[in-house]
């Protein structure tokens, strides 16, 4: 039993951190007319070469052969910079392709030769038709990943008419579309794909919770009011401590859940959903609350467009509509029993 990173895992974290801060700094999001999903081709290829789209795939599909644990570490780093979710959706699409036996498609996705968006069914019983989906990162994507109670599917979205929607988070392209006539190119039982999706989403949330904590902590060391750094006032330092606690507890549960998920691939375990959904609800709360506190404690500068704090808030809100809602995950947590040996 050990919840600390080993040397190889630390190297993965360091390498990811250095690439992300160099190539995908949060400041890239400035200038709202440039959707960041339009990643430069060579950057997208570079990301594929690093193996981020194929961490857990077999070597046959061009994979790196790591476990969910290492994949989680990468996506936590990606979360710190509100990285393009196209990376997440394409990595998940490659898993669906591989699990469906479409190794060729899996390796094309893994190599970054194509990309996938995420299509969430708009099942809210309102004005939208029951067939319509809200598609995230639809731009430059050839495929749409969707999940229902039974299946995870990849559909070919080329030639589909998208109704673009402007969103809170301008770095994520969003559109409404009816994908029901799109050809299904791969499908597989939903459970393992959904678990992996939720875990990686939680990993990004943890990265965001940690990044917002660091952001305000650094500012609190230098910004002065009443002749003293604001970090010396308990009205500021105590909420900072609470931010750190939320991030740290969510991180520990994330690591634990990633180990449980990775173990479940070797032997039958019944509590994967319990741990993964717990990680998600804690990480989501940590990211949402920390991005809120980060803006509040910055004061006026926090709400300006030229500052980066608002990107975390907007991304955190946008992500809440991916891979089931907080409420659905809470229901899973309540109804899934603990395994006695844990």
């Amino acid at each position: 039993m050990d919840l600390l990173l080993d040397n190889e895992q630390q190297q993965i974290v360091d390498a990811t951190k250095s690439f992300v801060s160099d190539q995908l700094p949060i400041e890239r999001l400035h200038g709202r007319d440039i959707p960041s999903s339009q990643l430069a081709d060579d950057l997208w290829k570079g990301i594929a070469e690093l193996g981020w789209l194929s961490m857990t795939l077999n070597e046959d599909s061009g994979g790196v052969g790591y476990s969910d644990v290492e994949e989680c570490l990468v996506f936590r780093e990606l979360g710190r910079m509100c990285s393009p979710p196209r990376i997440l959706f394409t990595a998940l699409a490659a898993k669906v392709a591989e699990r469906s036996g479409c190794n060729e498609l899996a390796s094309r996705l893994a190599r970054g030769e194509t990309a996938a968006g995420y299509a969430a069914k708009e099942n809210y019983g309102g004005h939208q038709s029951a067939l319509s989906s809200r598609v995230f990162e639809y731009q430059d994507a050839d495929y749409g990943l969707s999940m229902d109670d039974e299946l995870a599917q990849l559909v070919d979205t080329r030639g589909v008419v998208f109704e673009p929607r402007l969103g809170l988070d301008r770095s994520v392209s969003m559109a409404i579309s009816d994908l029901s006539d799109c050809p299904v190119v791969a499908e597989t039982p939903v459970q393992p794909v959904h678990q992996s999706a939720v875990l990686l989403q939680a990993a990004m949330y943890v990265g965001m919770a940690e990044a917002t904590t660091s952001m305000i902590v650094e500012y609190a060391k230098v910004r002065e009011t009443f002749g003293k750094p604001i970090g010396s006032y308990q009205a500021v330092r105590h909420p900072c401590a609470d931010m750190a606690i939320r991030a740290e507890t969510a991180r520990c549960q994330l690591f634990y859940a990633s180990l449980v998920l990775s173990e479940s691939e070797k032997c039958e375990t019944s509590d994967v959903d319990l741990h993964v959904s717990s990680a998600r609800v804690l990480a989501e709360q940590a990211a949402c609350k920390n991005s809120d506190d980060n803006i509040q404690l910055h004061g006026g500068i926090g709400v300006t467009d030229e500052f980066t704090a608002h990107y975390f808030l907007k991304r955190a809100q946008t992500m809440r509509f991916w891979f089931a809602t907080n409420r659905e995950h809470l229901s899973t947590v309540l109804s899934t029993p603990m395994t006695p040996s844990r």
């Binding site: 507890t249 969510a250 549960q253 609800v281 947590v333």
Partner: peptide, 22 residues
């Protein structure tokens, strides 16, 4: 929902404990 959230928090307490023990 409150019961579920607290249950998730107790799992985090345990994971955090394991992290401190490590």
């Amino acid at each position: 929902e409150k019961l579920a959230f607290i249950k998730a928090q107790t799992l985090a307490i345990k994971s955090f404990t394991l992290s401190i023990l490590s």
